[in-house]
Amino acid sequence: MGWMSRALITLAKSHQAKYNVISGISQSSRHGFSTTSFNAARMFTDKHEWVDLNGKVGTVGISNYAQDSLGDIVYAQLPDVGSDFNIQDECGALESVKAASELYCPVSGKVVEKNPEVENTPGLINQSCYDKGWLFRIELSKPEEMEQLMDEAAYEKFLKSQADDG
């Protein structure tokens, strides 16, 4: 019982925090980022995942745009440690408001770690998608794939073009 009630308390706290965060996002910056989250190493896919490479290992998460469009995430199905994926393979799912959204592996490699905090408290993805809400770490088998990804500026441009098309 203990861990569950602790988890619930954490969840309640994170919800409080989340609403503060949300109220801080203005409509105009909905597709953008706050300057504090800027990270030169963070690269994005057109499926709205990000990879932050450190040596051979990349940390993977979803973008602010993605978490915002998904809404409250209630379940994170993350890939098992040790499993291998090719780029763009389906590697998990995030569930929010009755919709299961597929996660695509942004680069090829072997999963070396997943974020148990996110499994326990999926709301962390909404609350802190670039920091505490990371999903898993992957050892890249084809590091050159990083070159195909967008840096933050290019990703922002991509989001803008998507919004213009839509």
């Binding site: 389906e90 408001v97 009755k98 919709a99 299961a100 959204s101 597929e102």
Partner: peptide, 19 residues
């Protein structure tokens, strides 16, 4: 986002899959 009749009785339940 479910369908209700007479304000509260649910006649339909919704779910989705996105990829």
């Amino acid at each position: 986002e479910d369908v209700t009749l007479h304000g509260y009785k649910q006649i339909s339940g919704t779910a989705a899959k996105l990829g």
